[in-house]
């Protein structure tokens, strides 16, 4: 993310929401178009998401698809340092994880036709 200020991020092609289940979190990323969803299936692997959230102590990531909402749903195990009942973190419920993942830079070869036009 070092020289990312001018780079496009995931937020250009997708929206998202995250929440908690005990010490785990789910992060849903939803493409703005069918093309964006199809591209995300190739780009946003569970390994890539696991790597992104590694600093938070995530131990395992599962990815599920919900094509009806163009969604990729990631379940992040053990990512909340104890969860809402015991975590010392400000964001003990993972509320900001989706917004944080949407900051992931897109590669330069991401087709411009995928960008959300509003």
């Amino acid at each position: 993310m070092s020289q990312g200020s001018t780079r496009k991020t995931l937020a250009s092609i997708a929206h998202g929401r995250s929440g908690d289940k005990g010490n785990h979190a789910n992060v849903a990323i939803l493409g703005y178009s069918q093309d964006a969803f199809d591209w995300l299936i190739g780009f946003l692997s569970k390994e890539k998401v696991e790597d992104y959230f590694k600093p938070l102590g995530v131990t395992q990531v599962e990815r599920y698809l919900a094509p009806n909402v163009r969604g990729l749903n990631f379940v992040l195990k053990d990512v909340l340092a104890g969860g809402s009942s015991a975590s010392l973190r400000s964001d003990s419920q993972g509320k900001t994880l989706a917004a944080a993942l949407l900051l992931m830079p897109l590669p330069p070869d991401c087709p411009a036709r995928l960008f959300f036009k509003g």
């Binding site: 929206h15 929401r17 929440g19 289940k21 789910n26 849903a28 939803l30 969604g71 749903n73 379940v75």
Partner: peptide
């Protein structure tokens, strides 16, 4: 769509 997947596993 966002809420459909909120706090959902599979």
């Amino acid at each position: 769509a966002e809420q459909l997947l909120y706090e959902v596993g599979d």
